[in-house]
Design a protein around this nucleic acid. Sequence first.
RNA 1: GCGGGUGUGGUGGAAUUGGCAGACACGCAAGAUUUAGGUUCUUGUGAGUUUCUCGUGCAGGUUCAAGUCCUGUCACCCGCACCA
Length: 801
Amino acid sequence: MKYDHKQIEKKWQDRWEEAGAFHASDCYDKPKYYTLIEFPYPSGQGLHVGHPRSYTAMDIIARKRRMQGYNVLFPIGWDAFGLPSENYAIKNHVHPSEVTKKNIARFKEQLKSLGLSFDWTREINTTDPEYYKWTQWIFLQLFHHGLAYKKEMSVNWCTSCKCVLANEEVVNGVCERCGSEVVRKVKSQWMLKITEYAQRLIDDLTLVDYPDRVKAQQIHWIGRSTGAEVDFATTAGDQLTVYTTRPDTLYGVTYMVVSPEHPFLEKWKGQIKNFDEVAAYQKEAAKKSDFERTEVAKDKTGVRLDGVSAVNPVNGAKIPIFISDYVLVSYGTGAIMAVPAHDTRDWEFAKKFDLPIIEVVKGGNVQEEAFTDCGTGILVNSGILNGLPVEEAKKKIIEYLTEKGIGRAKINFKLRDWVFSRQRYWGEPIPIIKCPKCGYVPVPESELPIRLPNVKSYEPTDTGESPLAHMTDWVNTTCPHCGGPAKRETDTMPQWAGSSWYFLRYADAHNHDALASKEALKYWMPVDWYNGGMEHTTLHVLYSRFWHKFLYDIGVVPTPEPYAKRTSHGMILGENGEKMSKSRGNVVNPDDIVSEYGADTMRLYEMFIGDFEKAAPWNTHGIKGCRRFVERFWNLQDILCEGDSIRKELEVPFNKAIKKVGEDVENLKFNTAIAALMSLINDITAVGSITRGELRIFTLLLNLFAPHVCEEVWKNQKFGGMVCLQDWPKYDEAKCVDKTIEIVVQVNGKVRAHLNVPADIAKEDALSQAKANEKISAEIDGKNLIKEIYVPAKLINLVVR
RNA sequence: GCGGGUGUGGUGGAAUUGGCAGACACGCAAGAUUUAGGUUCUUGUGAGUUUCUCGUGCAGGUUCAAGUCCUGUCACCCGCACCA
């Protein structure tokens, strides 16, 4: 019999489907296991070899859990709203839903050809009104709870997409998606108050099993800092409040800085003698995009306010106020107290503008560089704080300021609220009606979903309005509150909306009355294991944790966190070690691999390629090794011998392999799990034959990685049923150790001999055998034996002089 | 600058309570089978001046013993970045 992957793979994909082998059961008394992959965006390019890396890994976990007796949910769906489909639609004058439909069909076919054990009965699609009804419903709940609000604000505007971007979508000053320049623009936007959850998003990381690097990145992104607000009196009459993390250095303040956008500047117009200069600087700063602003970061610029100054509240010193773009209006209070002796940026600015530098923490040479160390310094020149270490001084000054009513302890976050509107067509309409009398009125829940109307042109407008704005029939409506004429919101939601809750829908994908039933959520949540890309750490994962926490607070979901465990895979790079991309010409098409070598080989190779969590370059030669392995497995059928059990000589290799494959898979060490199976097949080949019992175990193990060929062998050998529905094999710990072992004998740390001894040999026997060894005795005779090191079952080291 | 990570044969990568560095695979070489081989099988394969020595980015240290622990340093990758 020759191995023919084309015939075998299609056949078993069909049989699994006919048998419903991978359908999650709705009977809730069995233990459940929910494995999740990031549902793909069905792009026009089709599947990338990167997709199957994550999918196969979770497929392996899902298959193993089924064999371990769990009711497994391993679902799939489509994150189908988004710009590429819309742009394609604009260019080719087809409806984005048509494009999406076509792309999904292609993706589906490609995914099915990989033999992934998805439960297709729960397939979802974010662009389906039955689905986005509930995305809109969640938005309404956020609105009712004051977490969705409209705000006039300066936003990131992509000049090419003609669309607002979230902070998270701006990378190095350019649009994450298209790479075009991003500028600031003031627009009225829907915002979501993710900042309200900042602290809990940090705290609850202790409840989940995420890799440290993911936790660290989220914590860093949320950017909590503790410090104090301090009120400074000014000669203009207003109190200028600043935020500082170093209130202990208050006596060292020699000037203050406000951001160019600070509202006081307009208010103080009459008193600022050099207002022309100030206005010119403001204008210059506003023109710069964020990118330019950070590009020139090295050189500090600014203008001193002539006519207004401040007073240091602790020592009465009169201090000048500057305006400079190194202070951001969006963080803290938009103003700072500058302590050049102990802050690098303030130090640079002070040097440039020749401002005094007063040392208040001893330990460095503040005329040479800022001394920022908080651990070792002692306060000096600081009145009531003199002699205190930094941390104590912080406490004392906050107490003092609080008592006097001129300051208070304060916690700040770098995290900003989430800009939630997009001026594009292909997204969920925001279910809000703007009434001239009643303001923003939510659409009644009974009217959901608000469907996307058919428009003639999907082209975004240059005024920055959504294409929906031209649809007067759709836009003009009546106010649900007062019944008067009103207009619909024409902005749509960002792509992140549908993906912020999709894992909930899988629990009960066809429910018409709720996003999912309470019982289904209670049973299936949380997701037990979620694997995805590192690039979503501060986007999708953070956003969906936020939504989930909100839904938890209003009693919709039963768990405070959506994902109990999150892991991340490394990228698959091109053969040249660079990121795969069309422009680099190093893209590998998974279809070609599946067609030439088969899905089983492809799956094995993607798992064998290297450490799952690290990036790995694709290597076409490497695939051959995996194909050979599959064929060697297939050919085991030709060397079958009598017997239904494992023979003595293979007892240890088999027990070891069962143990190792099981453990490695749990730790994402797929590469070494496969290596263990390759070793095992080498052991079998060395023996020259295999019993039915041995082949049975091997097939059960390999089935996780290469399911099709294993089903075929399973059927050929008439083991009964389907291999994917069998029990995971057990091993005997006692049979995982060899009866005789090899002990290394070292002299002065250098290997000099190997001993074959019984595994349970006593220390004395081992030592005397070692010394009796010819080579060893030649080394040690006539020398002083100072030390004997014995590591049981491993090594002997004789130290001589 | 801050946070996270990586550095091992010709190649992808194994090896972590410190205990034989290079598992497994690719590639390469020799041999066998074959009309043929981009097939299969067998054997070999870190380097060298080969009874031995050297070898895990570099320089030190601890230890009987270091890829692994400590100190310093270099290079590269990812994320963030004037966040007070």
